[in-house]
Design a protein around this nucleic acid. Structure first.
Lengths: 242, 242
DNA sequence: ACAAAAGTGTTAGGCGTACACCCATGG
DNA sequence: CCATGGGTGTACGCCTAACACTTTTGT
């Protein structure tokens, strides 16, 4: 395995969330490691001279097949004793040229619609899967810490920049869909009437002349997200909050 | 200069703010570089096997004499073209074993009372100074970007965790002092009556049986910050906001 | 006619903001 | 008695949160 062109000290871990129209999932890989099932975040060493953002895109793509995902850096993890579990050490020996090297890792996160992307395992990933965030799962290294931090910081970001949320919905969406998404993000239920009032105050959510069809109940109105109005509003430093 | 025990790829830059009872300043160093005045953030390479937090403390102390400052990581800067200015390149050649190496740098920030600490230049710092944040100053490398990001993220942090602000005041303080501090942080003036109302809602600001003395106006009441009440309040997820 | 989800309004309390005058002290 | 900064209250508008019934459609 030719690893001479890797920087042995710097890695990237990708904390990717996916919304499946119902709940939020996190993207995990299962390592190729005989007789053990170890789940981990997709992550690997950065190449010498490679930009961190570029490395994050490459690593995610190599392990999971996901490309064109806009990831953002959220924190760097640099404790020298990040690696302690014997299973992790064994695995590093099997794959790294300098398995004992001290590695600092830069966490990147992103959130996407699971339906818009196909995932398939490759490189040292034996499997890739979407795992519901509400079901705890033990991960390799300090990946539980990294994943939790990544989720907390993404939620903070969505509060400040709700545009992130609208990328998770189809172009036309109902208020029920929007509410389901918000409930998945905040982790609890919201009052329908108050939710609608708050949302419809935002002029960048525009009603369409179109309704649901073939539903066995009163059809819901479709809405769309208007990027231009959104940008103006945020230029004026107006806020839309949870 | 024996630099073999440094990791040539990882550095730390320290963005330290100081409150001098009036305004916020940033800690800068002037490099030892003949015939050029170059200001920069205190920063240097991390040692092999050194924890990032430990490195931040060491580097700050080596360059500026400041110790026991609780710094927090805020962002990692990893663009491969961070270094472009000929003056910066010349300087790296004079000091680094691998001056051409691609370096990613981890930004740390902190805010302290300038009066509680003494600064004195050492190592490759020729001078150390507190520079008012409202006066722009061109810095080496991408340090302007790092400093601005560090300040923005510290402000965000203070909003969420006001305890940071109370570390900048004496144990007994007047509401006027508290307001001056807040005005320095937010960068504009605040209404006295409204400020008091908001602050005194917080039960962790407790009035003392003591007033100012020897002032040529009505003496102000002293208050203190009660850490226990603060912790309870924040456990209950109550908020104190700007 | 029934089931299922859409859609709608009011009230009460808390919070932010704007704004002007009297008070206590030292000199 | 003057200068200086400390200390106080009210009114308005906006937001949040709690809460129940009618409407439209497919079956």
């Amino acid at each position: 395995m030719a690893t001479f062109h890797y920087n042995p000290h710097i890695s990237v871990d990708c904390v990717i969330f996916g919304f499946d129209d119902e709940k939020i999932n996190i993207l995990l890989i299962k390592r190729k490691q005989i007789d053990k099932k170890v789940y981990a975040l997709p992550g690997d060493l950065v190449k010498k001279g490679e930009d961190l953002d570029v490395a994050a895109a490459r690593i995610l793509s190599e392990l999971t097949g996901l490309s064109n995902v806009y990831q953002e850096q959220f924190k760097t993890f640099g404790s020298p004793d990040r690696i302690q579990d014997p299973a992790d050490i064994e695995w590093l020996k099997s794959i790294r040229e300098h398995p004992e090297a001290r590695v600092i890792t830069v966490g990147y996160n992103a959130i996407i619609k699971t339906n818009d992307f196909e995932i398939h395992a490759s490189s040292f990933a034996e499997e890739v899967m979407w795992h519901p965030i509400e079901k705890p799962q033990k991960l390799a290294f300090d990946h539980n810490d990294i994943a939790n931090t990544g989720w907390a910081m993404l939620r903070e970001k969505i509060k400040r920049e709700p545009i992130v949320a609208f990328n998770l919905l189809p172009k036309k969406f109902t208020l029920r869909q929007l509410q389901t998404l918000y409930e998945a993000i905040v982790g609890n239920e919201l009052d329908k009437r108050n939710f609608r009032k708050r949302m419809l105050r935002n002029k960048f959510i525009v009603p369409l002349d179109e309704k649901e069809q073939n539903v066995s109940h009163k059809p819901a109105q479709y809405f769309a997200f208007d990027k231009e109005i959104y940008k103006e509003d945020f230029a004026k430093d107006q806020w839309f909050l949870f």
